[in-house]
Each structure stands twice: as C-alpha cells, then as structure tokens.
Simulated scan of single mutants.
Amino acid sequence: MPAHGKKYQEAVKQIDHDKLYDPEEAIALAQKSSTAKFDATVEVAVKLGVDPKYADQQVRGAVVLPHGTGKTKRVLVFAKGEKSKEAEQAGADFVGAEDMVEKIQGGWTDFDVAVATPDMMGLVGRLGKILGPKGLMPNPKVGTVTLDVARAINEIKAGKIEYRTDKAGNIHAPVGKVSFETAKLLQNFQTLIDTLVKVKPAAAKGQYMRNITVSTTMGPGVRVNTLKAASAKKDAE
C-alpha cells in the first residue's frame, strides 16, 4: 500500500484520532484538513448495528438534503405519453422508453439517476444486469418508480440522495462540498443521521449507531460522537 503524501500527513496531524468530536467540530475539521486541489465532496460513513444478510435488518431509502450535494444530477426518465411530457417539463435530462432501453443495451449510461413509471418496469427490467451493479436501477423503495415523475425529478435535482447498507452494515453518503458553509453541511449531516435513526429496523438489537466518521475526498477521517449526533434532534425539540 503506497504511503500518503506530505499534504495528507500534515492534515492527519490536525486530528486527534482518540477523540470523538461534536458533529459541527468534526465537519469543520474535515473541511480544514481537506487536501484536494478541487472542491472535494464531504462524505459521511456510518456503521450500523444491523446484519444486512437478514431482510428485516436492511436499511435502504432516500432523503432530500436541505442544501443539496453541490452536484447537479443527470436524470433519465422511462415514460410514455403524458408522463413523458410531464418529465420533460419538470427538467429531466433524458426521457424515453424502448429507445432508451436500446441505447443503454448499447453501452450508454451517461446519467446519474433513473426514474420510471410503474408501467415501464416490465421494459426496464431487461436492463437489470446493466443498471443493477451500477446502482442505477429504478426502485420504489427510494421513490424512483412512481407516477409522480415531476416530484421525483424535483427532489433529485434539489439534492435527494440514496442510502443503503453494504454487506458489513455500513452506509456511505455525500452531504455536500468543502466550499459549503459549515452550518449548511451540519444541517445536511443532521438530516441524514435523523433519517437513519428514524428508519431503525425493529429487528436490530443492541447499539444501533456504532460509529460515524466524516471525511472529504482523499482527506483523513474525523470520528464523530454518535450520542451527540443521534440526540441532536431531541435536544432541539
């Protein structure tokens, strides 16, 4: 494994790896210690006390971040007739049916999110082996299989992100860019954490939120006090 560069080593020195930081402090430190020359993404990694191999302990869904992610997503909508027109008017980047299926089967996947009306899923199902591994398959659990295509498009464009536990029970999600104000990143972070607390599976036993880390693209991780993060909403009420 290659050694980290000087900038990374200097950034690491700013962080006390034995300390659990309050969310706002952790985010500010992650911004300060970012080593990228570009406007890096601020990411959150959450270790949950679940066993995803059991269906009733899987955590998956979507949430609209109040301040977006700092990235404009390209939306493809599978629809026909009036729903196709509705998608175009709502600002979808690509709209189609059989033509889009053929295009994707030909190797094109130049989009970030796919939305489909329920009647199109029989057609879209042919693309499972292509879109599934890329995380691009429309899914009713995250609101991308819907008759209300305008709402789906607006939410995605406004900053809707999907979250899903991996095999180890971890969730990785973007909450903005280093250039964001710390207060806005904190609100995005808290929205994500509050959502994860809300969707805790009934079958999950023991401590649910095991640990939280905030980091930036290519930057070091900053550990967050999970009790502070998980109770922030209660404190505000």
Score class of each variant (00 low, 15 high):
Ile193Gly: 01
Lys198Glu: 15
Thr182Glu: 10
Asn211Lys: 13
Gly176Phe: 03
Lys160Phe: 03
Thr165His: 11
Asn211Gln: 13
Gly159Trp: 00
Phe189Pro: 13
Ile193His: 02
Ala158Arg: 13
Arg164Asn: 07
Glu181Lys: 15
Asn170Cys: 10
Thr182Tyr: 00
Gly206Leu: 06
Gly206His: 13
Thr195Arg: 15
Glu162Tyr: 08
Met209Asp: 10
Phe180Ala: 08
Thr182Asp: 05
Pro174Glu: 08
Ser215Pro: 09
Phe180Asn: 01
Lys177Leu: 09
Gln187Ala: 13
Ala168Ile: 02
Arg151Gly: 14
Val214Leu: 11
Lys205Ile: 03
Pro201Thr: 09
Arg164Ala: 02
Ala173Val: 14
Thr213Pro: 04
Lys167Glu: 15
Arg164Lys: 15
Ile156Trp: 03
Lys167Asp: 15
Thr195His: 07
Asp194Arg: 09
Pro174Cys: 09
Ile153Gln: 03
Glu155Met: 06
Ala204Ile: 02
Lys205Ala: 10
Ile212Thr: 10
Pro174Trp: 11
Arg151Phe: 02
Gln187Glu: 15
Ile171Tyr: 01
Leu196Tyr: 04
His172Arg: 10
Ala158Cys: 02
Gly159Thr: 09
Ala152Tyr: 04
Gly206Ala: 12
Arg210Asp: 11
Asn188Asp: 12
Asp166Ile: 01
Val175Tyr: 01
Phe180Lys: 06
Met209Cys: 14
Ala202Thr: 12
Ile193Leu: 06
Ala158Phe: 05
Ile156Phe: 05
Ile156Gln: 01
Asp194Gln: 11
Ser179Ile: 04
Val197Lys: 08
Tyr208Lys: 00
Thr191Gly: 14
Arg151Glu: 15
Arg210His: 13
Glu162Trp: 02
Gln187Ser: 13
Val214Ile: 13
Asp194Met: 02
Ser215Met: 08
Val214Asp: 15
Ala204Asn: 07
Asn154Arg: 12
Asn211Thr: 12
Leu185Thr: 05
Ala183Pro: 05
Ile171Val: 15
Thr165Leu: 06
Ile153Thr: 01
Tyr208His: 04
Leu196Phe: 01
Phe180Glu: 07
Leu186Met: 11
Pro201Ala: 07
Gln207Lys: 13
Gly169Trp: 02
Thr191Trp: 08
Pro174Val: 04
Leu192Phe: 13
Ala183Ile: 00
Tyr163Leu: 09
Gly206Ile: 02
Gly169Glu: 01
Val199Asn: 00
Asn211Pro: 02
Leu192Asp: 14
Lys177Gln: 06
Ala158Gln: 13
Gln190Tyr: 08
Thr191Leu: 06
Ala183Asp: 15
Ser179Arg: 12
Ala173Thr: 14
Ile156Leu: 09
Asp194Ala: 11
Ser179Val: 03
Leu185Gln: 03
Val214Trp: 14
Ile212Trp: 12
Gly206Pro: 03
Ser179Met: 08
Thr216Cys: 09
Arg210Leu: 12
Val197Ile: 14
Asn170Asp: 09
Tyr208Ala: 06
Glu181Val: 00
Leu196Arg: 00
Ser179Ala: 13
Arg164Asp: 04
Asp166Thr: 06
Pro174Gln: 10
Lys157Tyr: 05
Ala152Met: 01
Asp166His: 08
